[in-house]
């Protein structure tokens, strides 16, 4: 997409704020609406916008499909890994209270932060990967 000066400038201005909003939704999920799923799709939407304006090849130079293929299962592994970790710390599966031996509520916050990070990784990379596969077939 060579022309479209306005689209290029506006999307370049918008994308950092989109990503910042996604991070806000991610880390503010304990206090306001949001969490891993919402943040993940916002991240994916920001990258899809970039790919639409600057081209799929340019996008795949930044995030290669191979990296996404690693990120999709990695998110699930992080989530399940937190569960296994709480097992070894003496609790039940996904019993976040065990993550902090002094204050279980800190463990809850830490556990939610970690599993939400896993959800974000899987959701964002799956959306982007599906977009890559669809958009890549047209050529």
């Amino acid at each position: 997409m060579r022309g479209h000066l306005i689209l290029r400038v506006v999307s370049k201005l918008l994308i950092p704020f989109l990503l910042l909003f996604a991070l806000y939704v991610q880390f503010h999920g304990d206090f306001g609406p949001g969490g891993g799923f919402q943040a993940g799709v916002i991240v994916a939407a920001a990258f899809v916008l970039y790919a639409l304006i600057f081209g799929l090849r340019e996008m795949q130079r930044i995030i290669p499909p191979a990296a996404l293929e690693v990120a999709v299962p990695l998110g699930v592994l992080i989530y399940a890994g937190v569960g296994v970790l709480t097992w070894f710390l003496g609790g039940n599966f996904l019993d976040y209270g065990m993550l902090d031996s002094h204050d279980p509520s800190h463990g809850q916050h830490l556990g939610i932060l970690l599993v939400e990070a896993g959800v974000l990784l899987t959701v964002a990379s799956t959306m982007l990967l599906i977009f890559y596969t669809f958009a890549g077939r047209g050529r």
Partner: peptide
């Protein structure tokens, strides 16, 4: 859990299995 947003605490903590 001391998480003010009950939606998040139910989703990620009480119902962590479902979200997994």
């Amino acid at each position: 859990t001391t998480v003010p947003n009950v939606v998040t605490s139910v989703l990620a903590s009480y119902r962590g299995y479902d979200t997994l």
